[in-house]
């Protein structure tokens, strides 16, 4: 077991102990702050319900990640290929980020309905900018020596882009993808809060409304675990599949 996992488990255990102590010592009502034990019991009792909603949120996150990352890569490459696209699209992209994504959620629900599409769109919107920005940044920082070499070799611009610039920018893109893995669950859950009938965000709102605070906490921790696992898996995938780009 590596040290990051060990320290994570130790921190979690410490947090649970403090939490239990606070509940025991202050006698806070269970509908305000349930004890870790009660949250655990609720998790086991509602396992099927939580699993069902987790699957929905996970699907939204995965679709959001796939579409958001793809669109981000296409946009950054487009900026590099076409100065006109960069001229017109970059200000639009920056302006779109100036509008808080939270504010867009009700509009997206209005336009796209209560189903999965509005949540996936939220996740895409929140992922799109960091991926585009990270890759674009990397593409503009190709080592000058490599550009000189390609120039002397009479490189074709597209081949230069795919054989040198894009691989050289991979560490930036991979950082963007890691960020996306953290942001995607936020997008999906915000979408669910605004209007949905499924997903962990919906389950949390539902439990909160019915004063089932233990279930709300169980859903919250499931979401946290889901996000951390996703980040861990994506980091591991990057490490294994893209080692040669990371080792520059």
């Amino acid at each position: 077991m590596n040290s990051a996992v060990k320290s994570g488990i130790a921190a979690m255990a410490g947090l649970i102990v403090i939490w239990q102590l606070v509940v025991t010592l202050t006698g806070v009502p269970r509908f305000i702050l349930p004890s870790p034990y009660l949250v655990g019991v609720s998790f086991i009792e509602n396992f099927e319900l939580i699993a069902e909603h987790t699957l929905v949120t996970l699907s939204e996150i995965m679709f959001g990640l796939a579409i958001g990352i793809t669109l981000g890569i296409i946009t950054a490459l487009q900026f590099e290929i076409s100065p006109a696209a960069k001229f017109f699209l970059k200000p639009v992209l920056i302006f779109s980020q100036a509008i808080p994504v939270f504010a867009l959620a009700p509009v997206l629900t209005l336009w796209l309905g209560y189903g999965m599409i509005s949540k996936v769109t939220m996740a895409v919107l929140i992922i799109y900018f960091p991926v585009t920005s990270a890759l674009h940044d990397g593409l503009t920082r190709t080592p000058s020596g490599l550009c000189d070499l390609a120039h002397v070799m009479n490189a074709k611009p597209l081949r230069m882009l795919f054989l040198i610039k894009l691989p050289a920018a991979m560490p930036n893109l991979l950082s963007g993808i890691r960020l996306a893995a953290v942001y995607a669950p936020i997008g999906a859950v915000i979408g669910e809060w605004v209007g949905s009938s499924q997903g962990l965000g919906y389950l949390m709102l539902l439990a909160n409304g019915r004063v089932k605070t233990d279930l709300m906490f169980a859903a919250l921790f499931t979401l946290g675990f889901l996000s951390m696992s996703l980040y861990g898996l994506i980091t591991l995938w990057i490490k294994l599949a893209f080692r040669r780009f990371e080792a520059q």
Binding site: L149, V152, L163, P167, A168
Partner: peptide, 12 residues
């Protein structure tokens, strides 16, 4: 043909 002080190899 051009050779620089750095070898300019593509690490990947």
């Amino acid at each position: 043909g051009y050779m620089a002080q750095q070898d300019l190899l593509l690490e990947w």
